[in-house]
Amino acid sequence: MNLTLHVWRQKNAAAKGGMTRYEAKDVSPDMSFLEMLDVVNEGLIAKGEEPIAFEHDCREGICGSCGFMINGVAHGPQRGTTVCQLHMRHYRDGDVLFLEPWRATAFPVIKDLVVDRRPFDRIIAAGGYISASTGSARDGNTILVPKQAADKAMDAAACIGCGACVAACPNAAAALFTGAKITHLNILPQGAPERYSRARSMVGQMNAEGFGQCTNIGLCEAVCPKEIKLEVINKMNRDYLVGVLA
């Protein structure tokens, strides 16, 4: 099949960007979306043009490197799927696709489809951990974790930090990301001692980074490639409230 792409090109953070049109020819339905872009890029290089910069690494939907908007939807149309795992069999000959980077004040564009997501690391640094220095642990089975709690913690811990939630949100809020980490750690008995201070520090950092406020729209949940549930935001808000009141 043949597709038309309109891609956001921007030389660097300071430059002004704009959309450029490309034709993607002879696309096989078995290609991944990024493989389709690889082929387009090989063609651009052959013509002496600069290839489109996009981020990727694992191409297995787990590292969280990849991600951009396809026709206004973060990671494209397939539910629970990162753009590296999206395959071209979901498109038809003649489709026109618009590719744009994540848009959020907290995520400035670095080049083309690549943005700066360091604020996420700083939210984690503010408290997204259990303080357990190496060597201080007791035997693993002395801490019993009910299977249900372990499963719930794992559901939230599945977050890959790609930033789709922020990109999809009209407020550019990072509540799903932050809530997921707070939920993962706060559900577990190991996380209990720092439960409220963790929520307070992480939410504080999230606000300081310039993310917007969550107004329960739910687009984050809809695009999350790991299908993290909105309930993590409730958990965050509850623990945060206790954290600031206590």
Partner: peptide, 22 residues
Amino acid sequence: VNIIDQCVAQGVPFAREYGGML
């Protein structure tokens, strides 16, 4: 054996049996 203990302490959500054991 120390690795598992360390990771459990950090909150790595390892799979559990119904009794709560690893």
